[in-house]
């Protein structure tokens, strides 16, 4: 599902402000959109309509809480160097695992990058071994050791 691209110059001032000022800090109050409207010098109805419209157009995927990725269990980033002729089949094999929640093709000798998440390390290892056996290639596993970024959203046009 590919959303069409929105030209930032076509965004209204309100849309830009909603994107830049409300990626975090949505009020935990009885009427958050009315509170936002007051700050944005407009009405609750206008704010709600703008957010619905932005959601329908795919500019925002949702309005709500962003949860920290689940750390329960075990997970790792992994990479594989797959020959072009085997790529489609290996990529499909990797994606078919429920334990794989991200799988990207990248421009590099190591051209397949995926994340394996399971209730325990043993299951992560099993999945990696199955992928090694199927692909005939060693899997590089690069588990997270430290995450640095404090995620407050992303400046768009500041």
């Amino acid at each position: 599902m590919l959303a069409k691209v929105v030209n930032p110059e076509q965004l209204t001032e309100l849309e830009k402000r909603l994107l830049n000022e409300y990626q975090h800090g949505l009020p935990l109050s009885a009427t958050p959109f009315a509170d936002m409207a007051q700050h944005l010098d407009t009405t609750e109805d206008v704010v709600l309509r703008a957010l619905k419209e932005m959601q329908e157009q795919g500019m925002i995927s949702r309005v709500g809480p962003v949860f920290k990725p689940k750390r329960a269990g075990a997970s790792t980033l992994a990479a594989l160097a797959v020959s072009p002729e085997k790529l489609a089949s290996v990529a499909a094999y990797v994606s078919a695992f429920d334990e794989v929640n991200h799988n990207y093709e990248r421009l590099h000798r190591l051209n397949l990058w995926f994340v394996v998440t399971a209730p325990n390390q043993q299951r992560v290892d099993e999945v990696l071994v199955e992928i090694e056996v199927y692909s005939g290639q060693p899997v590089l596993y690069l588990p997270l050791m430290k995450h640095f970024h404090i995620d407050l959203g992303f400046p768009l046009w500041c």
Binding site: L19, G25, M54, I60, V66
Partner: peptide, 12 residues
């Protein structure tokens, strides 16, 4: 981590 609008960077 935060509560707010979650932008789709690709569309933007």
């Amino acid at each position: 981590r935060r509560i707010g609008a979650v932008p789709n960077h690709y569309t933007l």
